[in-house]
Design a protein around this nucleic acid. Structure first.
Lengths: 218, 218
DNA sequence: CGACTGATTGACTATACTCAACTGCGGTGG
DNA sequence: CCACCGCAGTTGAGTATAGTCAATCAGTCG
């Protein structure tokens, strides 16, 4: 159980989040003021910075990414409200984390070595499985399948409802799926034209043919 | 320290393997006969099977992969002598593992919950970082960069020598890098023609221009 | 020595990228 | 309140990279 009350935010809801376990009392706050606000685009930590703390998304969303020298970017994961991130293999951050939109982050530090392992292992293993599954998407699926898989994943993480909120830009989606914004846009349009999704607004999607989308994602 | 002596095999040597920690005495054998032989292509475990044991490559090499319904395959990682694999987020294997060549596998089971976490967490975190770095390769690098990155990684894992042994087929390399065997072959030829590598035989590569290769891999 | 399998090479094609023009939403100021 | 501006997103045309299919080559094993 958390040592602090955890007020839930309005957007990116996550009613049935299977990713993060219930934290035990071995999680203690890293600061006396354990929750900070990050405006859209703000860096939470950078590649190469010293690691150690843990972070939980209180409200908003976060992208974890890595840049190549020439500016190409790969987003390895998105984090929605409730999810925990920031743990590393050594004492250095190998990736950077930024707020996608206005985001509240709670900081933690684990008390003992034993606690660290007990709490973190299930989290690390789940993230490992997720990363490996994303490797299949990037390595062997075409652009349409990638977008379909992304929408299905986002919908499931938001409680399996038909209405989903996308806190991230088309650029973020492209950098997560290893395709360009133009390709993302074209596929959204194609899915809309074939009645599989509706686009009430840029950042909101309604899934109309769940079964078709699921089949498209393989 | 291992409870058993660990004779090292001839091929895929791994003199300075930073991936696996020294196992403590909390690792106990899962069977009275803790080491098994797998011929090339043999399945060590399959997707969907019950997980629980840990596996260490005694000699030979292993590929961990996942198949799509239509036969497309993504290899998420290769394991060389000394490396440990088989841990999962839940009690089910989400991927399958097969011997690439004649391979000896040692089985383990961890004794207590505390031991499991203490031993496994650093391993899981390191694998997570590796998987995330591979996401960058699959998502944002072109075929030449992928092959270069693969060769650099294999060379480093085999002690940073110029001579490297590739236990896997071109198909395996392609399925790891998310490209076709023809593309792998064409890029090997191009690297050979430009004097960056030599190909003494199909499964042996000599790196001639280490700096160029490293720069190509970004 | 021949057959089989895996690898290479070539010709052609398709998918997704690049570059560019245009659209529309959201915010700001007159 | 409406008009304008700017940026994110969409759409289009042409291109390049890697894929597909097919033929050939080479290495291995019986």
């Amino acid at each position: 159980m958390l040592a602090y009350s955890t007020p839930r935010s309005a957007l990116p809801l996550q009613p049935s989040d299977a990713l993060h376990p219930i934290l035990s009392e071995s999680f203690v706050p890293a600061k006396s003021q354990p929750c900070s606000f990050f405006p859209a685009g703000a860096e939470i930590y950078g590649q190469g910075e010293k690691a150690g703390k843990l972070y939980q998304v209180e409200f908003g969303s976060v992208r974890v990414s890595r840049l190549l020298a020439d500016g190409r970017r790969q987003i390895s994961t998105f984090l929605l409200a409730g999810e925990i991130f920031g743990f590393e293999a050594d004492d250095t951050h190998h990736f950077s984390a930024e707020a996608i939109c206005a985001t509240g982050i709670r900081f933690f530090r684990l008390s003992t070595r034993a606690d660290i392992s007990r709490e973190l292992l299930p989290l690390a293993l789940r993230n490992l499985t997720r990363a490996q599954e994303h490797l299949l998407v990037l390595g062997r699926q075409n652009a349409t399948e990638r977008v379909a898989a992304f929408l299905v994943d986002m919908a499931e993480r938001q409680g399996g409802l038909n209405q989903i909120a996308l806190p991230m830009s088309r650029q973020d989606i492209g950098d997560y799926l290893g395709i360009t914004i133009e390709t993302v846009s074209r596929i959204f349009s194609k899915l809309r034209e074939t009645g599989i999704i509706k686009l009430p607004s840029l950042r909101n999607i309604e899934i109309r043919k769940w079964d078709v989308l699921q089949r498209m994602s393989q």
